[in-house]
Amino acid sequence: MLRLWNLILFELRKILNNKKAFLFLIVLNITPIIASLALLIAYISCKSLGLGDFQFLAMKRIIQAMFTSHFTIFGYTAPFFLALIVGDSFSTEFGRGYMKTLLLTPVRRWQVIVAKTSSIIIFLLIAVLLGGFILQADLFIARAITQPSGVLPNPLQEKLMDTSISMVSVSSAFQLLVITFVANLMMIGFFIVFSMFFESAILMTFCSIGSVMAIHVFYLSAFMLKELVKWFGPLEKLCFTRHFTDLFSLNIIQNVLDGSVTILSEKVLEPMGFSLLWAVIFYVLAVIIFSRKQVLH
């Protein structure tokens, strides 16, 4: 157990030691960074109104909208970055011989897969949390720079306007993290299976992303084509990408944020369940392939 823990820490150290990781953190959080600028513009534009409460409300709406879009954009763009990170963790290590050195130590091959996945998930969750923290910090700043006007009596003001300085509830934030974890676990598993056959991260990324796109395009067109060709129907069910897009749809994220849907609702639970099932399939496949893989470099 201690060995596995050390391996996870080592893998995390390798990811964080990579300059690409910092670039990914910036790129994946481009929305929160833009939100900070938008906040400044909103403050200057609303200053003429002279009412701190309205200014804060406008800013809060902007930030909340940014959070929803950040999460959706994150959901759609993360796979591209994930493919690159997985490629770096497996394909590059096969090519450069790091994997050989790792396998000369008494670690088991499944432990390598678990450790690398855990470190990538931790990195990904750091990226999500970082975005959330930046947006939450924006909200604190917005509250600090916009003082209550005092025009409306306090009880009435609280009824009319959302003066809370929490961007999302703790429960919603936790549920969004669970969705991120499950959906990305499936994608990471898929990329790991792919990375077993390549020794170049870039090549692996192009091929795996190309495959993901092909599968999803097939899924999008299958709803019409299955009427013409019968075997398109069963094939459509195998398109695992649909569960990923379902989980990161704007509709679901908004519903989770406003509390009208939880991760236990059928709408979320079904794609989450299938994502987990696919994740198990991909990881079993990855372990089988890896245990038979010849490490030649």
Binding site: L2, L7, F10, K14, G97, Y98, L102, P106
Partner: peptide, 27 residues
């Protein structure tokens, strides 16, 4: 064991490489 050309993490020092890879044997 050392098989063919040994490969360690390029961006880590000799000490760090031994520390991290060594941690996979025992403390």
């Amino acid at each position: 064991a050392v098989v063919e050309n040994p490969s360690f993490i390029d961006t880590l020092s000799a000490y760090e490489n031994l520390k991290w890879f060594g941690s996979l044997y025992k403390p």
